[in-house]
Computed example of a mutant assay.
Amino acid sequence: MPIKTILVHLADDAHHTARLEVAVRLAKRHDAHITALFITFPVGMPPTVAGRGASAVFISAGRERARERAAALQKEFDGTCANEGVSHTWVVEDGRHLQALSYHAHVADLMIVSHSDEGEYLEDRFRLRLAEELVFDVGCPVLLLPRVKPVPSIGRHVLVGWHSNREAVRAVRGSLDLLRAAESVTVLTVGPTPEDKLSEHELVAYLARHGIRAEGANVEDRGGIGTTLLAEAKRRGSDLLVMGAYGHSRLRELVLGGATREVLRHAEIPVLTSH
């Protein structure tokens, strides 16, 4: 699928510059439009805030500070895109992050966010799982960036984690433009291919018909699929991992598959994923 609209989460955090840099880089490569979404509602409340009144005061004060910060970020965003000659739109929303991002993803081909931060407190580990929740809630591929500044490169050497199911297929189809622009693409399977699944060779042939030259590889499972994929990405010098996101929501609790959990929480390179 062509990448023509990129949605970037431009929150007031230390990693927003890296997300903007990657969005601009990809927009120039694919002649795409960037929509930057800034959300004034706080991501979550610290453990010290308790009670309905205190919560309301915290949210109100947080929104006011966010609006002030939004003005500065808009100048940075507009200036960067104008200097790079990139078509762009700035949007400010007052709703909750997951709902607002999911809503605007309906008219985007790719969303860019940062990996979740584990946080200092146990509460943080639940309220800051925005990136993981987005993968299962939005209708477009999600590009998760590692929490490093800047992101050195992305999409030159791509590793595709292939498992021949719906999630992996959606991730591959959502990344065709990125794969086409890559210098090298490796389709990797871990362990033997079950009889009811397509091997890496079938996907390599499929990509060739899209004008994408790729090589297939199979490796033994070394401590879990997620761990193996990350180790292979590092060994091969990959700067992008494409894989399906496996899991489901149970009674509003996000339950990740083992490979997905391992990759989303420990990847040191960008990950493009889809559910």
Rank of each mutant, 00 (worst) to 15 (best):
E232K: 11
A168D: 03
A71P: 03
L37T: 05
L143S: 00
R250W: 12
A105T: 01
P194K: 12
G257W: 08
T48E: 07
V219M: 07
I212D: 04
A72H: 11
H266S: 09
V86P: 08
H266K: 09
M243R: 13
F126I: 10
P42D: 03
A23R: 15
H106V: 01
V91T: 04
D109Y: 11
V242N: 11
T35Q: 13
I112D: 09
S116E: 10
E183A: 12
V138C: 04
G247R: 11
F136E: 07
A32K: 14
P42Y: 13
P150E: 03
F58T: 03
E118R: 15
S274M: 10
E232I: 09
K75Q: 09
A23D: 07
L98K: 04
I212W: 02
H157Q: 12
A131W: 00
S164Y: 05
V8P: 13
E132M: 12
G211C: 13
L101H: 00
L179E: 03
M1V: 07
Y206P: 09
D196Q: 12
A171E: 02
E183C: 06
H30W: 15
F77C: 08
R252K: 07
G223P: 04
R29L: 09
V57I: 14
S238P: 06
C140R: 10
V190A: 02
L251C: 02
I59Y: 00
E262M: 02
E84S: 11
V43H: 11
K4T: 03
T80P: 00
C140V: 01
D117W: 12
V43F: 10
M45S: 05
D137N: 14
Y103A: 06
G191P: 08
A231P: 10
G62K: 12
A267M: 06
R69W: 10
G247L: 10
Y206V: 04
S184W: 13
V22K: 05
G95K: 02
I6L: 02
G139K: 13
S164M: 02
E232Y: 09
A14V: 07
K4M: 01
P192R: 13
A36R: 08
E183Q: 15
T80D: 00
L134A: 12
I212P: 10
A131N: 01
L229W: 01
A100P: 00
G226E: 03
